Simulated assay, not measured.
Amino acid sequence: MDKKKILYVEDDETLAFLTADNLEQHFDVVHCNTGKKAFDLFCREDFDLCVCDIMLPEMDGFELATEIRKRNADIPIIFLSAKTMKEDRIKGLRLGADDYLVKPYSIEELILKIEIFLNRSQKYNDKAPKAYTFGHFTFEPENYLLSLPDKEITLTEREAALLKFFLDNPNTVLKREKILTSLWGTDDYFSGRSLDVFISRLRKIFKEETHVRIENIPRVGFKMVIDDY
């Protein structure tokens, strides 16, 4: 079976060598040492996932993720950074990143995160139903496409995964830890904050739809309420 192709962006030569050497045992890894080189390459070749440092020359990781998202709304993006401030993590997630690991990171954890995202993408392609219909929306999980009668919204892979999880469990209270372990592979603090960001994004999409809402269940989790579903 062909290895999945990873775009790895890191300007620290030693760290890049060690990380790429480990990743290449599992994936086809293409390394770039500047954000600009990475984006130019991304525009020319197809990748399954991106792993990006934030503090990069020419174009930093935040700018790179923004440009990648303009061209591809669903490719998974994992940030690797020495920036430990939670504001930086939240900024990265708001820009469309799927995860954020702080240096020094465990190579085993990085590989696990990559495999979770890639396996989930494959499951979508293999098993996802053609469409869900709820309220005034139609959702095609394999295409990350959410449609209204007058417009279409392309979700990120993480948004699509979360929405599909809710639609597979409509009008049901879902514990935070169940959502996190199912979609993130962990239920730590920063994964929880990431979940809150994506819940907020989906709520903005549904704010004009009176028959669909995501409710907070205090100290428990969330429930997606769909009237007459």
Rank of each mutant, 00 (worst) to 15 (best):
195 L>M: 12
11 D>L: 06
96 G>Q: 07
228 D>C: 08
18 L>T: 09
38 A>E: 04
90 I>W: 02
51 V>K: 05
56 L>W: 08
73 A>Y: 08
56 L>N: 09
130 K>E: 12
40 D>C: 02
114 I>S: 00
225 V>L: 14
135 G>N: 06
152 E>D: 14
159 E>I: 00
145 L>I: 04
170 P>Y: 13
107 I>V: 12
77 I>M: 11
104 P>N: 01
191 S>I: 05
120 R>F: 15
203 R>M: 00
167 L>G: 04
20 A>G: 05
119 N>A: 09
222 F>E: 09
125 N>V: 11
17 F>Y: 15
113 K>N: 01
189 Y>V: 10
137 F>I: 10
37 K>M: 05
216 N>Q: 03
48 D>S: 08
175 K>C: 07
25 Q>W: 08
206 F>R: 07
116 I>D: 03
206 F>G: 04
182 S>F: 06
139 F>D: 03
218 P>A: 12
73 A>P: 01
125 N>P: 00
212 V>M: 01
45 E>C: 01
75 I>T: 09
176 R>A: 06
62 F>L: 11
21 D>P: 00
113 K>E: 02
206 F>L: 04
52 C>G: 05
200 S>H: 10
120 R>A: 15
170 P>D: 10
16 A>Y: 02
77 I>W: 08
67 E>F: 08
217 I>N: 02
168 D>E: 14
92 G>Y: 13
187 D>G: 03
166 F>A: 03
107 I>H: 06
87 E>Q: 08
49 L>I: 15
151 K>L: 08
164 K>T: 15
207 K>V: 15
84 T>S: 11
106 S>N: 10
225 V>W: 14
124 Y>T: 06
41 L>N: 05
